[in-house]
Protein backbone atom coordinates (compact mmCIF):
# COMPACT_ATOMS: atom_id res chain seq x y z
CA UNK A 1 0.00 0.00 0.00
CA UNK A 2 2.80 2.32 0.84
CA UNK A 3 4.29 1.90 -2.65
CA UNK A 4 0.95 2.81 -4.18
CA UNK A 5 0.92 6.00 -2.17
CA UNK A 6 4.55 6.87 -2.87
CA UNK A 7 4.63 6.00 -6.55
CA UNK A 8 2.70 9.06 -7.82
CA UNK A 9 4.82 11.37 -5.70
CA UNK A 10 8.03 9.77 -6.90
CA UNK A 11 6.85 9.84 -10.50
CA UNK A 12 5.88 13.49 -10.24
CA UNK A 13 9.23 14.33 -8.68
CA UNK A 14 11.06 12.37 -11.37
CA UNK A 15 9.20 14.10 -14.19
CA UNK A 16 9.83 17.43 -12.52
CA UNK A 17 13.54 16.64 -12.36
CA UNK A 18 13.60 15.72 -16.06
CA UNK A 19 11.89 18.98 -17.00
CA UNK A 20 14.34 21.03 -14.92
CA UNK A 21 17.36 19.27 -16.44
CA UNK A 22 16.11 19.62 -19.99
CA UNK A 23 15.27 23.26 -19.38
CA UNK A 24 18.72 23.89 -17.93
CA UNK A 25 20.31 22.24 -20.97
CA UNK A 26 18.44 24.59 -23.26
CA UNK A 27 16.11 21.94 -24.61
CA UNK A 28 12.37 22.48 -24.91
CA UNK A 29 11.27 19.96 -22.24
CA UNK A 30 8.07 18.71 -23.81
CA UNK A 31 9.57 18.45 -27.26
CA UNK A 32 12.65 16.71 -25.87
CA UNK A 33 10.56 14.19 -23.95
CA UNK A 34 8.48 13.52 -27.04
CA UNK A 35 11.65 13.00 -29.07
CA UNK A 36 13.02 10.58 -26.46
CA UNK A 37 9.73 8.66 -26.35
CA UNK A 38 9.53 8.43 -30.14
CA UNK A 39 13.18 7.46 -30.29
CA UNK A 40 12.50 4.56 -27.96
CA UNK A 41 9.10 3.36 -29.13
CA UNK A 42 8.30 5.24 -32.36
CA UNK A 43 8.82 2.31 -34.71
CA UNK A 44 9.11 -1.42 -34.31
CA UNK A 45 12.84 -1.19 -35.00
CA UNK A 46 13.25 1.38 -32.26
CA UNK A 47 11.25 -0.77 -29.91
CA UNK A 48 13.62 -3.58 -30.80
CA UNK A 49 16.63 -1.38 -30.00
CA UNK A 50 15.06 -0.44 -26.67
CA UNK A 51 14.42 -4.07 -25.81
CA UNK A 52 18.01 -4.81 -26.82
CA UNK A 53 19.16 -2.48 -24.05
CA UNK A 54 16.39 -3.67 -21.72
CA UNK A 55 17.46 -7.32 -21.91
CA UNK A 56 20.90 -7.17 -20.26
CA UNK A 57 19.64 -4.54 -17.84
CA UNK A 58 16.82 -6.78 -16.62
CA UNK A 59 19.10 -9.80 -16.38
CA UNK A 60 21.63 -7.87 -14.31
CA UNK A 61 18.93 -6.34 -12.11
CA UNK A 62 17.25 -9.71 -11.54
CA UNK A 63 20.54 -11.16 -10.40
CA UNK A 64 21.25 -8.20 -8.18
CA UNK A 65 17.90 -8.59 -6.50
CA UNK A 66 19.03 -11.96 -5.17
CA UNK A 67 22.27 -10.61 -3.75
CA UNK A 68 20.54 -7.53 -2.34
CA UNK A 69 18.04 -9.76 -0.56
CA UNK A 70 20.96 -11.68 0.86
CA UNK A 71 22.31 -8.40 2.23
CA UNK A 72 25.11 -8.22 -0.33
CA UNK A 73 26.22 -5.20 -2.34
CA UNK A 74 27.40 -7.05 -5.42
CA UNK A 75 28.97 -4.05 -7.13
CA UNK A 76 31.21 -6.47 -9.00
CA UNK A 77 28.30 -7.32 -11.30
CA UNK A 78 29.98 -5.28 -14.05
CA UNK A 79 32.91 -7.66 -14.00
CA UNK A 80 30.58 -10.65 -13.95
CA UNK A 81 28.88 -9.38 -17.10
CA UNK A 82 32.27 -8.93 -18.75
CA UNK A 83 33.42 -12.41 -17.76
CA UNK A 84 30.15 -13.85 -19.04
CA UNK A 85 30.80 -12.17 -22.36
CA UNK A 86 34.30 -13.61 -22.40
CA UNK A 87 32.91 -17.08 -21.73
CA UNK A 88 30.36 -16.68 -24.50
CA UNK A 89 33.03 -15.33 -26.86
CA UNK A 90 35.23 -18.31 -26.09
CA UNK A 91 32.42 -20.67 -27.03
CA UNK A 92 31.52 -18.66 -30.14
CA UNK A 93 35.12 -18.65 -31.33
CA UNK A 94 35.97 -22.24 -30.56
CA UNK A 95 32.83 -24.26 -31.28
CA UNK A 96 31.69 -24.77 -34.84
CA UNK A 97 28.26 -26.12 -35.55
CA UNK A 98 24.66 -25.17 -36.16
CA UNK A 99 23.03 -22.39 -34.17
CA UNK A 100 21.00 -24.90 -32.21
CA UNK A 101 24.25 -26.20 -30.75
CA UNK A 102 26.44 -23.12 -30.55
CA UNK A 103 23.92 -20.61 -29.15
CA UNK A 104 23.02 -22.72 -26.09
CA UNK A 105 26.72 -23.31 -25.51
CA UNK A 106 27.42 -19.57 -25.56
CA UNK A 107 24.63 -19.02 -23.02
CA UNK A 108 25.93 -21.79 -20.80
CA UNK A 109 29.50 -20.56 -21.21
CA UNK A 110 28.44 -17.04 -20.25
CA UNK A 111 26.49 -18.20 -17.21
CA UNK A 112 29.33 -20.43 -16.00
CA UNK A 113 31.98 -17.75 -16.43
CA UNK A 114 29.81 -15.13 -14.74
CA UNK A 115 29.01 -17.42 -11.83
CA UNK A 116 32.63 -18.46 -11.45
CA UNK A 117 33.74 -14.85 -11.36
CA UNK A 118 31.09 -14.08 -8.73
CA UNK A 119 32.39 -16.90 -6.56
CA UNK A 120 35.62 -14.98 -6.00
CA UNK A 121 34.03 -12.16 -3.95
CA UNK A 122 31.86 -14.83 -2.32
CA UNK A 123 34.94 -16.71 -1.24
CA UNK A 124 36.69 -13.54 -0.09
CA UNK A 125 33.59 -12.51 1.86
CA UNK A 126 32.90 -15.81 3.55
CA UNK A 127 36.48 -16.90 4.09
CA UNK A 128 38.30 -13.63 4.79
CA UNK A 129 35.48 -11.19 5.55
CA UNK A 130 36.55 -8.96 2.63
CA UNK A 131 33.62 -6.72 1.85
CA UNK A 132 32.14 -7.44 -1.58
CA UNK A 133 32.11 -3.78 -2.58
CA UNK A 134 35.89 -3.59 -2.47
CA UNK A 135 36.53 -6.98 -4.04
CA UNK A 136 33.79 -6.36 -6.62
CA UNK A 137 35.25 -3.07 -7.79
CA UNK A 138 38.71 -4.60 -8.04
CA UNK A 139 37.46 -7.67 -9.86
CA UNK A 140 35.56 -5.55 -12.36
CA UNK A 141 38.83 -3.84 -13.27
CA UNK A 142 40.51 -7.22 -13.57
CA UNK A 143 37.73 -8.54 -15.81
CA UNK A 144 38.00 -5.47 -18.05
CA UNK A 145 41.76 -5.92 -18.21
CA UNK A 146 41.33 -9.56 -19.21
CA UNK A 147 38.93 -8.54 -21.96
CA UNK A 148 41.39 -5.93 -23.25
CA UNK A 149 44.23 -8.45 -23.08
CA UNK A 150 42.26 -10.97 -25.12
CA UNK A 151 41.16 -8.36 -27.65
CA UNK A 152 44.60 -6.95 -28.38
CA UNK A 153 46.38 -10.25 -27.74
CA UNK A 154 45.30 -13.83 -28.37
CA UNK A 155 41.96 -12.90 -29.96
CA UNK A 156 43.17 -9.89 -31.95
CA UNK A 157 42.44 -9.47 -35.62
CA UNK A 158 45.29 -10.48 -37.90
CA UNK A 159 47.97 -7.79 -37.91
CA UNK A 160 45.97 -5.54 -35.63
CA UNK A 161 46.34 -4.61 -31.97
CA UNK A 162 43.33 -2.46 -31.23
CA UNK A 163 40.76 -2.20 -28.50
CA UNK A 164 38.18 -1.95 -31.29
CA UNK A 165 37.25 -5.55 -30.64
CA UNK A 166 37.77 -9.07 -31.88
CA UNK A 167 36.73 -10.39 -35.26
CA UNK A 168 32.98 -10.73 -35.75
CA UNK A 169 31.73 -14.12 -34.57
CA UNK A 170 30.42 -16.68 -36.99
CA UNK A 171 26.74 -15.72 -37.56
CA UNK A 172 25.74 -19.17 -36.36
CA UNK A 173 26.86 -18.08 -32.89
CA UNK A 174 24.71 -14.93 -32.93
CA UNK A 175 21.55 -14.87 -30.88
CA UNK A 176 18.76 -15.43 -33.40
CA UNK A 177 16.60 -12.47 -34.40
CA UNK A 178 13.37 -12.03 -36.29
CA UNK A 179 13.31 -9.84 -39.39
CA UNK A 180 15.01 -6.48 -38.95
CA UNK A 181 14.60 -6.55 -35.20
CA UNK A 182 17.93 -6.28 -33.43
CA UNK A 183 16.60 -7.67 -30.15
CA UNK A 184 16.68 -11.42 -29.94
CA UNK A 185 13.60 -13.28 -28.72
CA UNK A 186 16.01 -15.64 -27.00
CA UNK A 187 17.50 -12.78 -24.99
CA UNK A 188 14.10 -11.29 -24.20
CA UNK A 189 12.82 -14.70 -23.18
CA UNK A 190 15.83 -15.19 -20.93
CA UNK A 191 15.19 -11.83 -19.27
CA UNK A 192 11.50 -12.57 -18.69
CA UNK A 193 12.32 -16.03 -17.39
CA UNK A 194 14.94 -14.56 -15.07
CA UNK A 195 12.48 -12.13 -13.52
CA UNK A 196 9.86 -14.88 -13.12
CA UNK A 197 12.39 -17.26 -11.62
CA UNK A 198 13.68 -14.67 -9.17
CA UNK A 199 10.14 -13.76 -8.21
CA UNK A 200 9.24 -17.37 -7.51
CA UNK A 201 12.54 -18.02 -5.81
CA UNK A 202 12.34 -15.11 -3.44
CA UNK A 203 8.61 -15.11 -2.77
CA UNK A 204 7.54 -18.68 -3.03
CA UNK A 205 10.39 -20.87 -1.94
CA UNK A 206 12.02 -21.97 1.26
CA UNK A 207 15.33 -20.97 -0.31
CA UNK A 208 14.11 -17.43 -0.84
CA UNK A 209 12.82 -17.17 2.67
CA UNK A 210 16.18 -18.24 4.02
CA UNK A 211 18.07 -15.88 1.69
CA UNK A 212 16.01 -13.02 3.05
CA UNK A 213 16.55 -14.16 6.60
CA UNK A 214 20.29 -14.16 6.00
CA UNK A 215 20.04 -10.72 4.46
CA UNK A 216 18.06 -9.28 7.35
CA UNK A 217 20.16 -10.69 10.13
CA UNK A 218 22.85 -13.20 9.34
CA UNK A 219 23.69 -13.92 12.96
CA UNK A 220 20.13 -14.70 13.92
CA UNK A 221 19.73 -16.82 10.82
CA UNK A 222 22.85 -18.73 11.73
CA UNK A 223 21.57 -19.30 15.28
CA UNK A 224 18.33 -20.61 13.80
CA UNK A 225 20.33 -23.23 11.92
CA UNK A 226 20.56 -21.67 8.48
CA UNK A 227 23.97 -22.28 6.87
CA UNK A 228 24.44 -18.59 6.10
CA UNK A 229 27.72 -18.86 4.23
CA UNK A 230 26.30 -21.43 1.88
CA UNK A 231 23.39 -19.12 1.11
CA UNK A 232 25.65 -16.15 0.53
CA UNK A 233 27.74 -18.16 -1.90
CA UNK A 234 24.60 -19.38 -3.67
CA UNK A 235 23.30 -15.83 -3.99
CA UNK A 236 26.57 -14.67 -5.51
CA UNK A 237 26.63 -17.60 -7.93
CA UNK A 238 23.06 -17.06 -9.10
CA UNK A 239 23.62 -13.35 -9.62
CA UNK A 240 26.86 -14.07 -11.45
CA UNK A 241 25.13 -16.55 -13.73
CA UNK A 242 22.41 -14.07 -14.68
CA UNK A 243 25.02 -11.36 -15.18
CA UNK A 244 26.96 -13.79 -17.33
CA UNK A 245 23.92 -14.34 -19.51
CA UNK A 246 23.61 -10.56 -19.78
CA UNK A 247 27.20 -10.51 -21.00
CA UNK A 248 26.37 -13.23 -23.50
CA UNK A 249 23.51 -11.14 -24.85
CA UNK A 250 25.85 -8.20 -25.22
CA UNK A 251 28.54 -10.22 -26.99
CA UNK A 252 26.53 -12.56 -29.24
CA UNK A 253 23.28 -10.62 -29.52
CA UNK A 254 24.39 -7.01 -29.88
CA UNK A 255 28.06 -6.44 -30.75
CA UNK A 256 28.60 -9.88 -32.31
CA UNK A 257 32.15 -9.65 -31.06
CA UNK A 258 33.98 -8.99 -27.83
CA UNK A 259 34.70 -5.32 -27.13
CA UNK A 260 36.40 -3.86 -24.05
CA UNK A 261 33.35 -2.04 -22.72
CA UNK A 262 31.19 -5.09 -23.26
CA UNK A 263 29.25 -4.65 -20.01
CA UNK A 264 27.85 -1.38 -21.32
CA UNK A 265 27.43 -0.06 -17.80
CA UNK A 266 24.31 -2.23 -17.40
CA UNK A 267 25.59 -3.63 -14.13
CA UNK A 268 25.76 -0.27 -12.41
CA UNK A 269 22.50 0.74 -14.05
CA UNK A 270 21.01 -2.51 -12.73
CA UNK A 271 21.88 -1.44 -9.19
CA UNK A 272 19.90 1.75 -9.73
CA UNK A 273 16.99 -0.20 -11.19
CA UNK A 274 16.82 -2.46 -8.13
CA UNK A 275 17.05 0.49 -5.78
CA UNK A 276 14.25 2.27 -7.59
CA UNK A 277 12.21 -0.92 -7.69
CA UNK A 278 12.33 -1.02 -3.93
CA UNK A 279 13.85 -4.52 -4.14
CA UNK A 280 10.67 -5.90 -5.73
CA UNK A 281 11.00 -8.25 -8.69
CA UNK A 282 7.80 -7.17 -10.40
CA UNK A 283 8.97 -3.58 -10.67
CA UNK A 284 12.28 -4.45 -12.30
CA UNK A 285 10.92 -4.97 -15.82
CA UNK A 286 9.02 -1.66 -16.14
CA UNK A 287 11.72 0.43 -14.45
CA UNK A 288 14.38 -1.16 -16.63
CA UNK A 289 12.23 -0.40 -19.66
CA UNK A 290 12.04 3.22 -18.56
CA UNK A 291 15.84 3.41 -18.24
CA UNK A 292 16.43 1.61 -21.53
CA UNK A 293 13.98 3.95 -23.25
CA UNK A 294 15.79 7.03 -21.97
CA UNK A 295 19.14 5.58 -22.99
CA UNK A 296 18.10 4.57 -26.50
CA UNK A 297 15.67 7.41 -27.12
CA UNK A 298 18.12 10.08 -26.08
CA UNK A 299 20.20 9.42 -29.19
CA UNK A 300 17.43 11.32 -30.93
CA UNK A 301 18.28 14.39 -28.86
CA UNK A 302 21.48 14.64 -30.86
CA UNK A 303 20.04 13.59 -34.18
CA UNK A 304 16.94 15.74 -34.15
CA UNK A 305 17.52 18.54 -31.68
CA UNK A 306 21.31 18.83 -31.77
CA UNK A 307 21.51 18.31 -28.01
CA UNK A 308 24.33 16.34 -26.44
CA UNK A 309 22.81 12.96 -25.69
CA UNK A 310 25.04 12.43 -22.67
CA UNK A 311 22.17 14.30 -21.09
CA UNK A 312 20.56 10.87 -20.78
CA UNK A 313 23.10 9.89 -18.14
CA UNK A 314 22.37 13.08 -16.23
CA UNK A 315 18.65 12.37 -16.37
CA UNK A 316 19.11 8.80 -15.18
CA UNK A 317 21.32 9.80 -12.29
CA UNK A 318 18.99 12.62 -11.28
CA UNK A 319 16.01 10.26 -11.42
CA UNK A 320 17.62 7.89 -8.98
CA UNK A 321 18.58 10.71 -6.65
CA UNK A 322 15.11 12.22 -6.73
CA UNK A 323 13.34 8.94 -6.12
CA UNK A 324 15.70 7.99 -3.32
CA UNK A 325 15.22 11.38 -1.72
CA UNK A 326 11.45 11.01 -1.97
CA UNK A 327 11.70 7.49 -0.55
CA UNK A 328 13.97 8.67 2.25
CA UNK A 329 11.64 11.50 3.07
CA UNK A 330 8.75 9.07 3.31
CA UNK A 331 10.70 6.71 5.53
CA UNK A 332 11.56 9.70 7.71
CA UNK A 333 7.90 10.71 7.82
CA UNK A 334 6.81 7.16 8.56
CA UNK A 335 9.31 6.94 11.41
CA UNK A 336 7.60 9.90 13.03
CA UNK A 337 4.18 8.38 12.51
CA UNK A 338 2.67 4.92 12.93
CA UNK A 339 4.98 1.95 12.29
CA UNK A 340 4.66 0.55 8.79
CA UNK A 341 5.75 -2.99 8.06
CA UNK A 342 6.08 -5.07 4.95
CA UNK A 343 8.29 -2.67 2.97
CA UNK A 344 11.17 -3.96 0.90
CA UNK A 345 9.80 -7.38 0.06
CA UNK A 346 10.58 -9.16 -3.15
Amino acid sequence: MKRLRSAPLALAAALGAIVVILFAAGAPPLEAMRVIFEGAFGTTDRLGATLMAWTPLVLAAAGLLITFQAGLWNIGVEGQIAMGAIGAAWMARSVEGPSLVVVPLTLIGGAVFGAAWALIPAWLRTRFRVHEIFSGVALSFVAAAIAVYLIIGPWSRTGVASTSGTDIFDPRAWLPTIGSWRASPVGIGAAVAAVAAVLVLLRGSRFGLRIRAVGRNAESAHLLGIPTQRYLVAAFAMCGALAGIAGTVQATGFHHKLVPSISGGYGFLGVLVVLLAGFRALWIAPIALFFAAIQVGSTQLSLRLGIDSSLAGVIQGALVLVVLIVGGFQVYSAARGPVVTGEGEA
Partner: peptide
Amino acid sequence: VLDKVNTADRPETSIESVVDEMVAG
Protein backbone atom coordinates in the same frame (compact mmCIF):
# COMPACT_ATOMS: atom_id res chain seq x y z
CA VAL B 1 25.48 14.41 -37.10
CA LEU B 2 26.01 11.90 -34.36
CA ASP B 3 29.31 12.07 -32.55
CA LYS B 4 30.97 9.82 -29.95
CA VAL B 5 29.73 6.72 -31.74
CA ASN B 6 31.87 4.10 -30.04
CA THR B 7 31.14 1.29 -27.64
CA ALA B 8 32.43 3.12 -24.60
CA ASP B 9 30.51 6.38 -25.05
CA ARG B 10 27.34 4.87 -26.51
CA PRO B 11 27.06 1.27 -25.34
CA GLU B 12 23.45 1.06 -26.51
CA THR B 13 24.21 2.26 -30.04
CA SER B 14 25.49 0.38 -33.06
CA ILE B 15 26.58 1.77 -36.41
CA GLU B 16 23.73 -0.14 -38.04
CA SER B 17 21.12 1.47 -35.80
CA VAL B 18 22.63 4.92 -36.31
CA VAL B 19 22.47 4.46 -40.07
CA ASP B 20 18.87 3.26 -39.74
CA GLU B 21 18.00 6.42 -37.81
CA MET B 22 19.78 8.72 -40.23
CA VAL B 23 18.10 7.13 -43.23
CA ALA B 24 14.76 7.37 -41.44
CA GLY B 25 15.56 11.05 -40.86
